[in-house]
Design a protein around this nucleic acid. Sequence first.
DNA 1: GTAAAGCCGTATAGATGTGTACGATTTTTG
DNA 2: CAAAAATCGTACACATCTATACGGCTTTAC
Lengths: 200, 200
Amino acid sequence: MRAERKDKRRSEIESVALEVMRQRGYEGASMLNIAKAAKASNETLYRWYGDKQQLFLEIVKSNAADAEAALDKALAADLPPENILEEMGKRMLHLLLGERAVALNRAAASDASGHLGAAIAKGGRERVFPKIVLLMGALRKAGLIDPPDDEQAAMWFLSLLIGDLQTRRVIGTLPQPTRTQINEHVETTLQAFYRLCGPR
Amino acid sequence: MRAERKDKRRSEIESVALEVMRQRGYEGASMLNIAKAAKASNETLYRWYGDKQQLFLEIVKSNAADAEAALDKALAADLPPENILEEMGKRMLHLLLGERAVALNRAAASDASGHLGAAIAKGGRERVFPKIVLLMGALRKAGLIDPPDDEQAAMWFLSLLIGDLQTRRVIGTLPQPTRTQINEHVETTLQAFYRLCGPR
DNA sequence: GTAAAGCCGTATAGATGTGTACGATTTTTG
DNA sequence: CAAAAATCGTACACATCTATACGGCTTTAC
């Protein structure tokens, strides 16, 4: 198989795996079920990924890469920092509460070994948080906020933004929000954030 | 078996089930494994609970009852509302980030049917949130806060309090916090909360 | 004290998952 | 075009889980 076709096939399989997992849960997403749904043989799955956990590890990694790219795009935009913050908020909620991230968090919660959870944290929070801290620095220098320190401001922003939405999505009691709902929530969050961190 | 002994045995089994689940994940916590660990027969488990999901549903319910009792105790205390808020914060973090709640949230995340998640939400958030809203009303009447509305204040308080701690616990990247850490976190949260909602 | 009921341990049938193996077919390589 | 490599479909051995059943023992009820 040519390299490009193989890459395409891999991401196809990974996408199917996530869909199976979404419908039948992590335990229901057996290698056999995934292989059938992807019209692949389980031998190929085992050859390519080793086992189920590593398959999902791959998915976590590629999802993290996509997410980071989406956020970096917002950060690289030539906009004033307050607009970048708004854009980041929208994109983060869209990513965090979307089907992919929710399915992966469910998988991590199901995985007793903790490896999936560690990978999610490594590709997610540990990568994103520093960017938010830097953004807070930019906001502070622009005189838009006056927090105790940038890290605290980042924590507050993320807490206000995400709240218990993620947990509710993961345990299945909250449907995926629409784009409009996300925008409204970001709006409210920003008001609260500036009220909390704004200059006196 | 006398009623009291039976109740004791039930809670014993449920506690063992949670421990097995904690160590081996939701899939690993089969009825057989739980029965062995509890020195019970699986026939008894099936007779008493029907199936695995209903066993965990029972656990969710009794855990919710315990949690509600713990919070009500804080609410009933004859203290000024700001002290009650602090106490509530501590107790909620203690409950939410403790082994029991985390294990149950993991089970809910693993359960594709969504029934466990629904039960958790029903016994948890849906019961607790109104209490916090009322508490916010008391704080407002005492002139300690001046929020847009009590519900919004409750949301902000909970968001600042919990942040992403719960998610990080559930995916296994955060160890259980000590009592000291909880107290410190509540302290910081309250400062932020009053800064956000305090009277101008 | 005796009968009835309940629990434990073990056994069972049926279903499903894991990881490997092997021809048949397709795709790549040269 | 031919050889080599990889994939698919199917099959397999082995393990485990679910849900039920039954004899042996203990506890409850009368």
